[in-house]
Each structure stands twice: as structure tokens, then as C-alpha cells.
Design a binder for these strands. Structure first.
Lengths: 364, 364
DNA sequence: ATGAAAGCGCTAACAA
DNA sequence: TTGTTAGCGCTTTCAT
């Protein structure tokens, strides 16, 4: 017991009757022009297995000048996945995608940096010798530049800076929102409200614009008081905006909530006002983070966050390879959204015909 | 631009006019009996700052034989934080606690291991040279033994093996559940149902036993059909069990749900049956993961998961220090739960007096 | 196809 | 108090 001396490549080499170099080549499929005979190879592998040998990551990192770690700079002020699901989703999927490729994620927030004794994010990232960085912060151009200058590959996701010189991966709200509006319109809805977030950021604008455009394509002009814009995506805002909506004369028959957590507030307001979903009000959310877990399960526009993470990591690790061609222009990916219909949408309450219960059931 | 040669301790030493050893001592407050004069110290720090120097983590790890990484073996089959919040909470808080101490967490699942080319968890953990491991899996005694044999400190959390030889950190459901029952009883409830999980595992048993004991202390003997036990903590089970409860004659006036996700199902069943919470049915959940985000915000028994994570990491890092005393018996920590009352509890529906609305409001 | 040797950047004995 | 030295375990030319 206790830790007997760790087994190293020397032990394996000795046992297999070869040199350490050979062991190295066999174990990590090196890119040199060295060939190893199948027999030798097997001997090495066998010896390694018997000894329980695995290369020491720190030694590899030191020698290869690659730590295998990828920095991730999340949006600040992200709450729990129940408050604000997208940052959580992004983080999860980044970790997963990185792990699958043999990397690991180091989340770098201002606090992390401080805890590590760094004065700022850039220094912290550099001190950890990250092989690349994923940015989900619109306000870090200085840090981004620092990294780029030092030759560290960078990719910006979800809310990239306008004229990013580094690769970006963003989401196009269009397809999903158009599908959502079409879905509602084809059910017979003509007055559809938008509960979302205002401000001038492109992401918020794009969401609202997609909605208005989709409506316009259906020949519908939204009434201005059916567009309710709050200051952020929290539950409270959804609640407040929906209450306002319900207080106005001429209630809409359907609501599009520009985020799952907003939808939580919308639902709460509707419950409180005893407005049943979907028989008296249809509801579609944006995000599809926990829409399926609500009651009723919400029809929702899926943000392809997993794909965003996947592409971000792929871009980064591709950038790590010794570039075959010359420096090409940075890639800018835009991934589409799509709609998943569930049980929160039905024909409008004023519509004649079937009973509500049948409808709700039929739409499951 | 491009990566100019990285700055190393040699550069700092030269600039400060000292040796590399001095730089090392100054930068990492080494434990040797070396003293450095304040003046020298400042010179080194200044030079380091000017050069933007930070020690290379891989080099440190290699030399110190400490990677600074801690393995975490989560329960298998954990879903999203919306399905099953506790594993998510644990993971989050472990990462946080580790980061604060300058460590980082490597999650080790069967898939992770496989993706890294390891045949099993133990080998994977060993290959990553983790400095310690946190286990949240009841079924990994073999892996645990492997680690212990190799001299890697281990701590088991939440569901430790019965006679663990390594330190453990667990949760005592008692205090919180007693408080919950007392709260309900003092509101006037006499018939309180338990919606939980059966099986013979100690954790499930302890939860139910705490409930029954608390009731007994109030002089109440639960009716057997008010104890509804399902097979796991998912929403569906909560829904099913509650429906069964509502179908029986002699409905309870309050429900204790042994998990937040079960409570989700309870709420859904109550909505569907048009039973209002809290005026017609009081509800308390166990976990307090997202209880506050539900409608109405649920009174809930808090599992101190953050504290569990904190202690686990503390125990591990303490075990890393060169043990001052001899091998003492492993520590077994049990952390208490407590109740947070919110808006889901009120006097029972049959009680005379105030109107329901007033009550619900008063209890906010 | 294989072996010898240098060095990645750092730390901790030991010597001065 | 400071400097010298010897590796930590690995990869990768270069020579064989």
C-alpha cells in the first residue's frame, strides 16, 4: 500500500525490451515519420497494460507546450439554470464537447481570476496556459485582443462583437420564430403578443424583428401594445409584462415569450388570472431549455446550444493544428433555430367548433 | 504578434538580478526554510509583473507531483437540473469550492473514461493523476479501493458506503423534516401525506423514518395509504402517486414531497384536479433546489449541498498536506437540513376562520 | 525500425 | 540569505 513509485515510460520500455522513444510513439501515435512494427507495438501495449501505465499529463503538457485546457469566459451575472438556462446549457455542452476531444474547460470569471491571484481575466487565462478560449461576453474585446496577440486561438459565441476578427458561432432566431408564428396563425390566431426584452443589442433586436417579420409575412400587423418589452429575461419580468397585457382591452389569443424563464412568468400571470393554457391562451417560448418540464409542456423554439458548443470547440481545436493553408478569413457560423410543438398551443378561444378539452388532447 | 517566446522564471531572475530559485520561492511561497529579504522580494515581484510572468502550471505539477486536479465521480444516469437537481447542485458547488482553493474538478463518468481511452474509471482517474477523488456513487467500492491503495485521498458524499474506511460527508434529513412536520401541525394539519421513494437504501429510509418519527412526536400515527412510495424522484412518479392519493377517500390536507422534482409532479396533479395550493392543500418539498421558482413558491427542506461540497474539498485538500499526526480514523460528517417556509403552506381547508385568499397572502 | 540525448519550466535539496 | 544543481516524465530530433 501507500504510493509505490509511479510507473513511467522507462518501466514500460524495459519490460517491452524497447526504448522510451518507442513507447512514446506507440502510446501517443506521434506525428513523426517514425514507424513501429506491429509486433513491437503489441509488446509495448501489453507491457503498458500489465504495468497500468499511462503517460503523465503534466509531462506531456510541458513537453508538447499544450496544456489541453480551454478557457471559457461566460457572461457575467449568470444565475442558476432555473433563472437563466442558456448560460448553463452552454457551459454544460462546452464541457462535454471538450471532454470528448480530450480537452478540459477552465471557466474564467472575474472571481476565478481573483481567487487565483490574477489581476484580470487575460492574465489569468495566460497564466493557466490555455490552448484556446471561448468567449460568451460581449464586453471583453480587450481580453480577446490580448489573447489573439499572444497567439491563443479564440472563438466568440452567441453574442459576438459586431465585426469580430476571430471566428464566431451565433444563433439565427429566424427559422424557429417564423415556424412558431406560422404554427399559431395556422391554428387560427390573429392577435399574437410578444413578451420579450428591449434594448438595442442585436440579439434582442433580431428576436423581435424575426417575430414582426414572420407576422408581416402572414399579413398581420401587430398592435403596438401587444409588444411588451422588459429589461431582462427573468421570471418577474414575464409576470409583470403579462399582467400588463391582460389588463389591456382586447387581449391577444396567443403569446410568444422570448425566453423560457420569461415564459415561467407568463404562466404564473395566466394561472393567477385563471386563464387556461392552451384552451384560453396559446403560449410558445423561446430557448427550449426547460419548456418541456412545465405544465403544460410548452411548444418552444429550440436554440441549438449544443451545436454552438460543438462548433466552438471544433473551431478551436482545428485552429490548434499547424495550419496547412495560409491564414484564412475567420469563420462566422450562424446556426438555425427550430420549433418543437407541444401541448401549449391550440385554436384560439373564440374559435367555434370542438370543445377545449378535446383540442388540448388532440394537440398532444 | 504571434507567440513570442514565453517568459520563464529565468527571465524574471535575470531582470531582478537574482537566481531562479529565489524567483520560485517568492512566487509560490514555498515551504522550505528559505528566507527572502523584503527588498529582494519586491524586486522579483516587480520584474514578474513587468514581464507578465506566471509559473507554468504543467511544470509545477510535474515537479511537485501534484496536478491540482480533483476527480469527481457522479451518480450515473443523472439527468438535467430540471429532472434531478441534487447532482447538478453538487457538481456546481464542488467546482466552485475546488476553484476557490486553486484546484479544478475532473468529472469522471464511464463515458468520460471511455472517451479518454481508459478501460475503467479507476484507470482513468489514475491516468489523470488526480490529487484526490470525491465519490457520489454507492456502487464503486472497487474503484474506491483502487484509489486508496494507490495512496490517493478519497471522500464519499451523500450516499457513502455503509462502513466507509474513507472520510464521508452525508446529510441528516431529520432536523429539516421535523421542522416541516411541526410547521404543518402547528398550522392545524393532522393528516399529512408523504410522497416519496421506496426501496431499502438508507437515504430513502432515513427520509421516510424522519417523517414518521416527527409525526409520532406530534402524537400522530400516519395512515398507511397516506404514505405513497414510488420508484424514483422523477416528476411522473410525483404525479402518479398524488393522483392515487387524491382518488382515495379521506384526502390529506397537506403533502410532504421527498424531492423537488417529485413536488413538480404533485403540483401538476393538484392543478389537474383543481386543488389549490395552499388554500386547499399545503405542500412542502425536500431539496430546495428550485422550490422557490415554482408557483406558488414552495416551503422546502434545504439539503446543504453547498456545505457538503465545501467539506468534501476541505477534507481532501487537508488530506493532501503531509499528515502531522499519525493516520487518524476517517472523519464522518453529517450535515443538518433545515426548513425554509414560503407560500405553499396554510391552515387546512376544513379549518374555520379567515378566507383562503387572505390566508395565502398572510403567509407570504 | 530503433536508441541516445537534449530540454520543456519548475522546485527543493544542498552548498556557499 | 542566495546560488547551484539535479531531476520530475515526457517527446523528438538526430544518428544509427
Amino acid at each position: 500500500m501507500g504510493k509505490s513509485r509511479a510507473v513511467t515510460s522507462v518501466d514500460v520500455a524495459r519490460r517491452a525490451g524497447v526504448s522510451r522513444a518507442t513507447v512514446s510513439v506507440v502510446m501517443s501515435g506521434s506525428h513523426t515519420n517514425i514507424r513501429v512494427s506491429a509486433r513491437t507495438r503489441d509488446r509495448v501495449l501489453k507491457a503498458a497494460a500489465e504495468l497500468g501505465y499511462a503517460p503523465h499529463p503534466a509531462a506531456q503538457a510541458l513537453r508538447r507546450q499544450r496544456t489541453g485546457s480551454i478557457g471559457f469566459v461566460p457572461r457575467p451575472g449568470r444565475g442558476s439554470p432555473y433563472d437563466n438556462p442558456i448560460p448553463y446549457l452552454l457551459s454544460t455542452h462546452l464541457v462535454e464537447a471538450a471532454t470528448r476531444r480530450g480537452f478540459h474547460i477552465i471557466e474564467a470569471t472575474a472571481e476565478t481570476a481573483r481567487a487565483a491571484g490574477s489581476t484580470d481575466l487575460g492574465r489569468f487565462l495566460l497564466s493557466r496556459r490555455v490552448d484556446g478560449v471561448v468567449f460568451d461576453r460581449p464586453d471583453t474585446s480587450v481580453v480577446i485582443e490580448t489573447m489573439v496577440e499572444r497567439g491563443v486561438p479564440v472563438v466568440q459565441v452567441i453574442r459576438p462583437l459586431p465585426d469580430a476578427l476571430s471566428p464566431t458561432v451565433a444563433v439565427d432566431p429566424g427559422p424557429g420564430i417564423v415556424a412558431a408564428v406560422n404554427h399559431l396563425v395556422s391554428l387560427g390566431h390573429r392577435q399574437i403578443a410578444y413578451v420579450g426584452v428591449g434594448g438595442s443589442h442585436r440579439v434582442e433586436r433580431a428576436r423581435l424583428d424575426s417575430f414582426c417579420d414572420a407576422l408581416a409575412l402572414c399579413g398581420i400587423t401587430p398592435q403596438s401594445h401587444d409588444i411588451q418589452l422588459g429589461s431582462d429575461y427573468r421570471l418577474d419580468e414575464g409576470l409583470r409584462l403579462t399582467q400588463r397585457l391582460l389588463d389591456l382591452p382586447g387581449r391577444p389569443t396567443a403569446i410568444f415569450a422570448a425566453g423560457d424563464s420569461l415564459a415561467l412568468g407568463v404562466l404564473r400571470a395566466l394561472y393567477a388570472a385563471a386563464v387556461h393554457v392552451p384552451s384560453q391562451m396559446s403560449l410558445i417560448s423561446y430557448d427550449d431549455a426547460f419548456a418541456a418540464h412545465l405544465y403544460p409542456p410548452l411548444s418552444s423554439v429550440v436554440q441549438p446550444i449544443q451545436a454552438v458548443a460543438e462548433h466552438a470547440i471544433a473551431l478551436l481545436t482545428a485552429g490548434l493544428e499547424p495550419a496547412p493553408g495560409a491564414e484564412s478569413a475567420p469563420v462566422h457560423l450562424v446556426l438555425p433555430t427550430h420549433l418543437i410543438p407541444r401541448a401549449s398551443t391550440a385554436i384560439p378561444r373564440s374559435a367555434p367548433g370542438l370543445g377545449d378539452a378535446d383540442l388540448a388532447a388532440a394537440l398532444n
